[in-house]
């Protein structure tokens, strides 16, 4: 469960997010779509505590998280799979996955963590083949799988995915959205998905927000947004008339 109220994010004089409010209910898949520079990534970075907002509030499971540093938000069940993957290139695939469960290692036995690793391997069999390989040597698609797998290692309540399709071949993008749909089906993880591929995102999402120049332009049921003429014209490449 995640809630954001009137969030304003600014870099010096440049205001990237101008008062955004959104909510992700338990088990829900919420998409944020918007063009480059609409403030999507800034919003996500603020939610996971990588940057501090100028004003507004972030609630994780109804707890005000503004003063909580990013590494402690992870213990609250928030996993953030960052833009451009950001895997640990110099460590092995397996070590990357284990690091994803870093906060779990404090309370749980290593055998439990390895069970989760096996679960991830059934979702992404490619990773199993390459588990001892240095993560930097993986292909782009494999790296994205690793990044998602690493985030899932936390067994998160809320999963933030920042542009999982970026720079991937269409076949891999299909696979990626299949995985996202499967995570959604488990109903245990709520997902906040940011995507450039608006059509794909709206197809899988329950609800969606359309961000434009740091403001929520439209929000609502994803299927309705899919046929909204404004959305069609601006993001789906279909002429409204």
């Amino acid at each position: 469960m995640l809630e954001v109220k009137n969030l304003v994010v600014a870099y010096g004089g440049i205001v990237a997010v101008r008062g955004v409010s959104l909510i992700v209910n338990p088990g829900e898949l919420v998409a944020i779509i918007g063009a480059n520079g609409s403030g999507k990534t800034s919003l996500l970075r603020c939610i996971s505590g990588l940057i501090t907002p100028r004003s507004g509030e972030v609630y994780i499971n109804q707890t005000l998280a503004n003063e909580i540093p990013s590494h402690k938000r992870v213990s609250m069940g928030l996993a953030h799979c960052p833009e451009a993957r950001k895997i640990f290139a110099q460590q092995s695939v397996l070590d990357n996955l284990i690091l994803g469960a870093f906060v779990r290692t404090k309370k749980e036995k290593m055998s439990k963590i390895h069970e989760t690793v096996e679960e991830i391997f059934t979702i992404f069999p490619k990773l199993k083949e390459r588990q001892l390989q240095q993560a930097g040597t993986l292909s782009g698609g494999e790296q994205q799988m690793l990044a998602i797998g690493r985030a899932l290692m936390l067994k998160p309540q809320t999963l933030i995915l920042d542009e999982p399709s970026m720079g991937l071949a269409p076949v891999i993008i299909d696979e990626m959205f299949n995985v996202i749909e499967n995570i959604k089906k488990t109903k245990t993880t709520s997902i906040l998905l940011v995507e450039q591929l608006a059509y794909r995102a709206l197809k899988v999402a329950d609800r969606a927000y359309v961000l434009e120049q740091g403001l929520v332009r439209l929000e609502g049921n994803a299927k309705e947004l899919l046929i909204n003429p404004e959305v069609k014209a601006a993001y789906l490449g279909v002429n409204a008339h």
């Binding site: 505590g49 960052p82 870093f102 906060v103 690493r150």
Partner: peptide
Amino acid sequence: ETASLMGI
């Protein structure tokens, strides 16, 4: 930054 996203 990514390390802190892992809870480190």
